[in-house]
């Protein structure tokens, strides 16, 4: 049942992605991107990852707002001159199809869906599940990992996020550069 639901949602996401790629109006494409992100959030919920689903919804909303901010009041219709030539599209599709054919055998090496490898051996996930509650006091094992066992990882994430915000602010600063020759 879960598998079928995920299958349907993934097909929806793929169709949405095709629409995004072929849509002439950029605002429609951005809204479709938001729909795909929400579909991904539902898939996370179906896969028993509620923390991730919450974060994904928040990220989807914020990125939708950012993208709409980028497209609104601008030249939002793709003109025909912006499209690639037919031959380059065909070549690229052939290349990607070949890529897919070549990596298809690798799927047989992956664990079967529904039977993860961590359950069969003494993995670190097993350790977290066994000792997470007693060692950290957090009933939620995922937050126990994020904020306790692998807190340095989260610190790095915070640094990356801070740097990207710093970069965005410094790029978008609405102050014209000083004209050359003028005193600093």
């Amino acid at each position: 049942m879960v598998e079928i639901s995920i299958f349907i949602l993934l097909v929806f996401m793929i169709i949405g992605m095709v629409f995004v790629l072929e849509m002439k109006n950029l605002l429609s494409a951005v809204v479709m991107m938001g729909a795909i992100d929400f579909g991904l959030s539902v898939i996370f919920l179906l896969l028993s990852a509620p923390d991730l689903a919450i974060v994904q919804i928040a990220v989807a909303v914020i990125s939708l707002v950012i993208m709409i901010r980028a497209t609104i009041h601008r030249e939002i219709v793709e003109t025909p001159s912006q499209e690639s030539t037919f031959s380059s599209r065909v070549v690229m599709l052939c290349f990607l199809f070949l890529f897919f054919i070549l990596i298809y055998p690798a799927f047989s090496l992956l664990p079967i869906f529904g039977e993860p490898i961590f359950a069969e051996s003494a993995s670190s996930s097993m350790k977290y599940l066994l000792e997470g509650m007693t060692q950290t006091g957090s009933p939620n094992i995922v937050t126990a990992i994020v904020l306790d066992f692998r807190a340095y990882d989260t610190l790095g994430e915070a640094i990356v996020l801070f740097t990207s915000v710093l970069g965005a602010v410094s790029v978008l600063r609405y102050r014209n550069r000083k004209k050359p020759g003028s005193s600093t």
Binding site: S48, D51, L52, V59, S125, I141, V142, D153, L161, S164
Partner: peptide, 23 residues
């Protein structure tokens, strides 16, 4: 339970993806 470790790692990755998109 399902594996909690990839969930924790992807939680980081999702937020970093937002930062990359914003930049």
């Amino acid at each position: 339970a399902v594996d909690p470790l990839p969930q924790a790692l992807v939680l980081t990755s999702v937020v970093i993806g937002l930062g990359v998109t914003a930049l």
